[in-house]
Design a protein around this nucleic acid. Sequence first.
DNA 1: CTGTTAGCGCTTTCAT
DNA 2: ATGAAAGCGCTAACAG
Lengths: 353, 353
Amino acid sequence: MRTRLKDVAERAGVSVKTVSNVVNDYVHVSPELRAKVTQALEDLGYRPNLSARNLRRGRSGMIALALPSVHGPYFSELAHLIVREAEQHDLTVLIDCTYGELTREQTVAEGFRTHLIDGIILCPWQLGAADLRKREDTTPLVLLGERVSYGADAVAIDSRAVGQAATEHLLSIGRRRIGVMRHLPRNTGGVVGKIRLDGYKRALAAAGLEFDPTLVASVDRAHGLDAKVATDALLDLPEQIDALFCFNDELALVAMRRLYERGYRVPDDIAVIGVDGIAAGATITPTLSTIVPDKQQIAAEAVRMLVERIEGEPDDGARRVKAGFTLLPRESTMGLKRVRRGPRRSTKQAARS
Amino acid sequence: MRTRLKDVAERAGVSVKTVSNVVNDYVHVSPELRAKVTQALEDLGYRPNLSARNLRRGRSGMIALALPSVHGPYFSELAHLIVREAEQHDLTVLIDCTYGELTREQTVAEGFRTHLIDGIILCPWQLGAADLRKREDTTPLVLLGERVSYGADAVAIDSRAVGQAATEHLLSIGRRRIGVMRHLPRNTGGVVGKIRLDGYKRALAAAGLEFDPTLVASVDRAHGLDAKVATDALLDLPEQIDALFCFNDELALVAMRRLYERGYRVPDDIAVIGVDGIAAGATITPTLSTIVPDKQQIAAEAVRMLVERIEGEPDDGARRVKAGFTLLPRESTMGLKRVRRGPRRSTKQAARS
DNA sequence: CTGTTAGCGCTTTCAT
DNA sequence: ATGAAAGCGCTAACAG
């Protein structure tokens, strides 16, 4: 048995309350007693029992973050930002992987770590509006993404605007035959995919171009359709594409590799743009043009809304926050940085190890 | 106030104990009572209060995973695997970011979420053996990495062997002037870096080559020495290098970019190898040769050891587990896959969207 | 300013 | 097989 408040109290010759006061940094404690207590605390190596405290306080200071995965550049960065943000509010994040599975998502939405977590941030892939409507658990919940459109606070980027911006960028550099590579259906493919595709169509229309459904390739791992196969499908079209809009950067990386393998040059033959702004996109050659969602904003808004609910924001309907994004034109659309051939000295004096 | 065990008991007309038995799937409950209780449970939408349960049981089923960051390809994958692994043991993982800061690492090692977590997995960057020795908290602790060599269970890959394997690979393809790029000091640069460098030296010695300290470039962000600058330093040496061993894949990616910018071809002019096996390495061109630590094993061993400690494994000294790794030779050392020039049909019939 | 005391909701002897 | 009751360690309401 570890030392309890009571043990400390006995040792210091004071009451439990006083010790508690010291531990919790209450103001009204005489300096002498405080000193005595602090000493006893030290001597005994007291560690509060958070379970007991939480039980008593009815709050734990923990929130759950449920993501399809913490692996992968997008979610790992998001998780990181949310952890940081939560810290600002003295909240600890408990991470849960749903693997995008419906049952797990339901478990999270429906009574999950009850009374142990004060709130939940969930990024659903399969969960539907119906699930949310019949939700009985009252733990505050904030959703990430546009997938579900009912019953809880949510923060998401405007996928239509994203699709439109990417397409417009490609159009602006003179491309007219723009292939699209999207995920189906467990990823950005579902609702988000549709909306993004919608933005693509809209941009085409605005440019007076007709939408050609054969230009849309779908990656569907369940059916063995990976990004490589999808790229091939697009390349094997009778009329050659001159640009490729990938719904995320990882797809774009694979596609660019495939383009290389088949002898196409990026962006000369085919310009490529992705979405997410993963780190690798900045270092590969050509560097990858991309649309970067404002993840910091997503994290901040999600935590903010959750905290508000926890603090007792009246549940007057679900709130919906749109997060921003930035188009980052790089070499995969704008052209390669000129290269100095041969081993030469850098223009700037280079530092030695 | 949410419904408690007591409420359910009243509704079902039984005692609290019986309800508890049902909730906990105890055996000796008559079918009729069980049915009644189950019904009441449903009706009232009972959710157990985990804080109370944990207080009573003296266990929480949660472990903390403290990493410098969850962002970044290496740690995010490791985190993912540990979460998975913990799940197998009915443990929930609570993630904590230390940012590699000493005070945070100390906080984690020393009474952190006391009695709320059953154990800790910590990947320290700064924490020293002294910190561990004077550790008073008794929460089971498992360390990740070779940084700290005293006072707690640890699992790590053999950095010397890694350094040696990478170097030998470079030597085996005929390279003789092998540059090294390492991190200082908060990253793999400290202890691990030294050990890895040791492996490098050893491999050189075995090949009858002399160690040339000018071939070692150090990346040190604190002093504005990024991977680009370090690459330049290596390239500007009087005698040209023909290979580059980067202590992690992210450095290697940046280095390869810089090599491109300065007109060197990989691997023809300079072969490059990294460590970690990040995903992007498989898709960039040239694909990145790398050494892949067996992260699955690291995760499994860490959780296993922790669980053993939690279950009361006698503390008879710290245990040390070495995890394996694999050398993955790819294009950045072995040469580019041949490219079919011009838009041609793929050999295999490509699938259409 | 400090001490006493009553629970928080649950599990768990100990009876029955 | 089920019930009554005693705490787990802490906080907070209430006295003093």
